[in-house]
Design a binder for these strands. Structure first.
Lengths: 349, 349
DNA sequence: CCTCGTCGCTAAACTGATTTAGCAGAGCAT
DNA sequence: ATGCTCTGCTAAATCAGTTTAGCGACGAGG
């Protein structure tokens, strides 16, 4: 790859100057006393020869590689990863950086290997990303340089980027209240593990907190809270069926994520109920399938692209206070309406 | 990052030998006449000091970076990309290589930039990936080194990795025939553009070819073929509704991809039909949602991980004939059964 | 005793950039 | 004429490895 590349020496020779001069001109160094004419000649020579610096050679001297490592537990392979990487990629490009991607697959040996591989390549910094928003233990080796945690926190109080799940909980609850739902709002997806163990999830507790605070402030209590062993479609399906078997039917269901909502749609469809006429559904994540459903699902979106972008900004530009919370915008679609049988008219959305 | 790393000189000094000796030992060079004892000392010193070579320094001399560029049009961000990257990552790790990821977003300027960025970093080779299986134009700059096309072909007959869509078409048709479906098989997702223009899709034509050849060989004709402007859920929904409005109801529907099948499920559900008792559905891709559906969808899986892996193998190990077709395994789930009203018993699956 | 080959190892060149230290010449004041 | 500063530029060191060329000691053969 690139066998006969033009080197700085070639440029210097063509410009009739020394490598030093060429280097300084091309790097736009201030305070050098090279003549305007020398500048011209160097630029012209570089242009004519199509000169591109050799990053390896440069970084050997400067210890900067303009390369960021994106290390994830397993995120790079899941559907959730796309946005994270894409955002990071964009922000990196804007800063003339490039992304080296590795995956630990949650395996200690792989992690060790991955980290050595990137450290050997002298990356300028590391973005350590998690698939699920959670607290994690950062391998000590990467603490030797700049690190930003993406979708994660750690005991070390490292700079990190997190989705604002609590605020999303507020938004979701407010939306339901705004449509006139009051005392017949059901919640699907309680999960003690996720709520209690920050190493498993930070989202569950935060979303719940936001929802509860908002409803409480409006003097509203949840009709029911259904526990689920996981946040998968089948559990949403089971939970919803159980819900429909109870005497008092809810006017709205909050699902802790879209996969649960997916299952809820299936159960509601089977029961012959229409969304949102009979029951409204609202959720979190904005999984791609949310807009495949009929009616399309209203959900608070995980701002993956923004998060990936923010991580790079934090890493390269510094500043910004540490737990950087990225807002989760509500995707207003068609799954939320006024409570069944109410004379209420939906607000514009 | 890694300010005070141990260098080869440190190792050599500790072993009481020259840098040359240390280098040769650590690289396992044959034909050197260094004593067994010298080997011992170098290994011991490297181990004790935790020596790790500086890749930049090495590659400056050797012109090998043990880095592969993964350039995609837009693939890295979609749900389809995950497996591709994951497979490539795995295969790269096995060969002690690392992946540099960039995205062109289908934009010429971005592409130009991305390619310069990776060429500046002296990557050992490039994997050029497309989101949709198609023929594309390869930017000349990357032809200066080893390239493998992933999920794509080109006019230049470069080495490439493709899913075996035609064989998948055969499998899908065979499955339906195997369950006893004959003359009432409908097809959803015909699309002239996709079938005709290889720069848009290679899959449509290949899948269709496989299906037709197989049915023809069994003396079976398709009941109907429905055209769709895109392969999205809404089009599958519309097409299925249209299908159900016809006098003769199909016993099985082949969808050209899972998103169409998703829409088909919705239409069938609304019509009160049960899968597979009333109608069987089978499809292509194995999108993650395929196993969220009720019943779970039988579909010929795009072998993304295998493909990513194969691309790296092709790039690094060479050999293997060029259009490397990766089989698409059928995920046998619950959406296919014997034709409605038939006394037929489903084969084991 | 001289030459030759082999063994075990090393000095130094080389990769392509950045950076430090400093040189030659011009202009000015003393 | 001498010393000084300023201008415009360059030689050489440096980064951390790999690779080439070859050196000194030793033993064998003539």
């Amino acid at each position: 790859m690139g066998r006969n590349r033009v080197t700085l020496a070639d440029v210097a020779k063509r410009a009739g100057l020394s490598k030093t001069a060429a280097s300084m001109v091309l790097n736009g160094r201030e305070g050098t006393r090279l003549s305007a004419e020398a500048h011209q000649r160097v630029f012209a020579a570089a242009e004519e020869l199509g000169y591109r610096p050799n990053v390896a050679a440069r970084s050997l001297r400067t210890r900067k590689t303009a390369t960021i490592a994106f290390v994830s537990d397993i995120v790079a392979t899941t559907r959730f990863a796309g946005g994270l990487i894409r955002g990071a990629l964009d922000a990196a490009r804007e800063r003339d950086h490039v992304l080296l991607i590795t995956e630990t697959q949650g395996d200690a040996a792989f992690e060790q290997y991955a980290i050595e591989a990137i450290l050997d390549r002298q990356v300028d910094g590391v973005i350590y990303a998690a698939m699920a928003t959670r607290r994690l233990a950062v391998p000590p080796a990467i603490l030797s340089g700049p690190v930003v945690l993406l979708n994660a926190t750690s005991a070390e109080k490292l700079p990190c980027v997190l989705p604002d799940d609590e605020r999303a909980g507020v938004t979701v609850a407010e939306t339901l209240l705004g449509h006139g739902h009051r005392d017949r709002i059901a919640l699907i997806g309680r999960n003690r593990q996720k709520e209690r163990d920050p190493e498993i999830s930070l989202a569950a507790e935060a979303r719940l907190r936001g929802i509860r605070a908002t409803l409480a402030a409006a003097g509203v209590k949840l009709l029911s809270e259904t526990f689920c062993p996981e946040w998968l479609p089948e559990h949403g399906y089971t939970a919803t069926r159980a819900l429909l078997g109870r005497p008092e039917r809810p006017t709205a269901i909050i699902c802790m994520n879209d996969r649960l909502a997916f299952g809820a749609y299936q159960a509601l469809g089977e029961a012959g109920l229409t969304i949102p006429n009979d029951i409204s559904v609202i959720s979190f994540d904005d999984d791609p399938t949310a807009s495949w459903l009929r009616p399309r699902l209203s959900t608070a979106a995980l701002p993956h692209e923004q998060m990936g972008r923010r991580a790079v900004e934090l890493l390269l530009d510094g500043e910004a206070e540490s737990p950087s919370f990225v807002p989760m915008p509500l995707r207003r679609r068609r799954s939320v309406g006024p409570p069944a049988g109410s004379p209420w008219v939906a607000p514009h959305d």
